[in-house]
């Protein structure tokens, strides 16, 4: 059994679920890591250390920036010549496109965002959420190879053995690009909600602190955003202390409090951290579908009747502006930080 594992990275920063995919591939047999891009030696070395049996590097100027068409042609050509049984990807914005196009080229199918994958003879059965996670389906792909994108944190990450050596082979790119990358927008900072073990999220409630006096000269909307930023600063402190990421409800994003990349929920990211702390979030169904698979949910809300309390393991009825900083202090003490 031979599996290709596509190591997804942005300028050398690897999406951690790539390594989880590599671990899964090894449980089926031979794991070949694929790394596309320019100057990716460090990534290739890491792939060896995470246990790849073989590493194929396509270091080609054509692949300097991710562009779906030429990445897909390159992957399709490699799969045609080496006939893997399975191609695994971490689920990211890039890999959904890449897997989608590669499947068309190879006349096969993609199982997306899978949380379980079992070998069944020379085929595979995947478990994946549908209807926003309200149901799970088991699904199979009759084509060859089977393509699957795996959900972050659903499979164990293999141990990294520093200094391990292995074969790294360079291969050529194939195909042509159909677009150009003109640059990157003002950095919103890497927001990797999908891989975060801890997420502290804020909702509309983060702007609700009447006792804060905004700087003079702000109109009402600016004052609201300013207040929300004070609220998110408290949330960020707690998230950083716990080594986690900052999430948000759609109301917070639509209010202009925080960029869209932080949004959790139906039209944002679906996450499954070990700990999710919801601050000033009411718990609308569209938010819940994005976070209810967290292992432990903590809700902090002024309103004892807020629906978020129906999903939470621990609840505090109170003002987030008082509770969140107090929790940060208590955690600092107890964790000895």
């Amino acid at each position: 059994m031979k599996t290709f594992v596509y190591i997804d990275h942005f300028k050398g920063n690897v999406q951690p679920a790539s390594w989880e995919a590599l671990g899964l591939a090894k449980s089926f047999g031979n794991a070949v890591a694929l790394i596309f891009g320019v100057g990716v030696d460090e990534v290739a070395k890491a792939a060896v250390e995470y246990g790849a049996d073989e590493v194929l590097v396509v270091d080609d100027a054509l692949l300097a920036e991710y562009r779906a068409e030429v990445y897909a042609s390159t992957l399709s050509a490699l799969a045609s010549s080496q006939s893997p049984n399975l191609i695994l990807f971490p689920t990211t914005a890039r890999t959904r496109e890449l897997a989608a196009m590669t499947a068309i080229d190879l006349n096969t199918g993609v199982l997306t965002d899978v949380s379980g994958l079992e070998a069944n003879g020379d085929s595979f059965v995947a478990t994946r959420p549908i209807y926003e996670g309200k149901l799970l389906e088991r699904t199979v792909c009759s084509g060859k190879p089977v393509l699957a994108t795996i959900r972050g944190r659903a499979f164990a990450k293999p141990e990294r053995v520093e200094g391990k050596s292995g074969t790294i082979t360079k291969v050529a790119a194939a195909g042509e690009a159909k677009s150009t990358v003109e640059g990157y927008g003002a950095s919103e900072g890497a927001v990797n909600l999908g891989d975060a073990a801890v997420i502290v999220s804020g909702g509309r409630g983060v702007s609700n602190n009447p006792s804060l006096t905004p700087p003079a000269g702000m109109d009402e909307k600016q004052a609201e955003i300013w207040r929300a930023q004070q609220g998110f600063a408290l949330i960020t402190d707690l998230a950083q202390l716990l080594g986690g990421a900052v999430g948000a409800s759609r109301a917070a994003v639509d209010g202009g409090y925080i960029p869209y990349a932080h949004q959790v929920g139906q039209t944002g990211k679906v996450v499954a951290p070990d700990l999710y702390i919801a601050c000033g979030i009411s718990g609308a169904i569209q938010h819940l579908v994005g976070m209810r698979n967290a292992k432990v949910i903590v809700a902090i809300n002024k309103d004892a009747d807020a629906p978020i309390f129906k999903q939470a393991r621990y609840g505090v009825v109170g003002d987030l502006f008082a509770i969140v900083p107090a929790l940060t202090e208590a955690m600092k003490k107890k964790l000895g930080k």
């Binding site: 993609v110 088991r138 199979v140 792909c141 505090v316 009825v317 003002d319």
Partner: peptide, 27 residues
């Protein structure tokens, strides 16, 4: 169809017994 569903499953019911944390002060 190349990708087909073989089974449909209701996700395991989540136990959601909440414990409310109360006290005199935020601290």
């Amino acid at each position: 169809a190349i990708v087909t569903r073989s089974e449909l499953v209701n996700p395991p019911a989540q136990e959601t017994s909440i414990e409310m944390i109360t006290g005199e002060t935020p601290a």
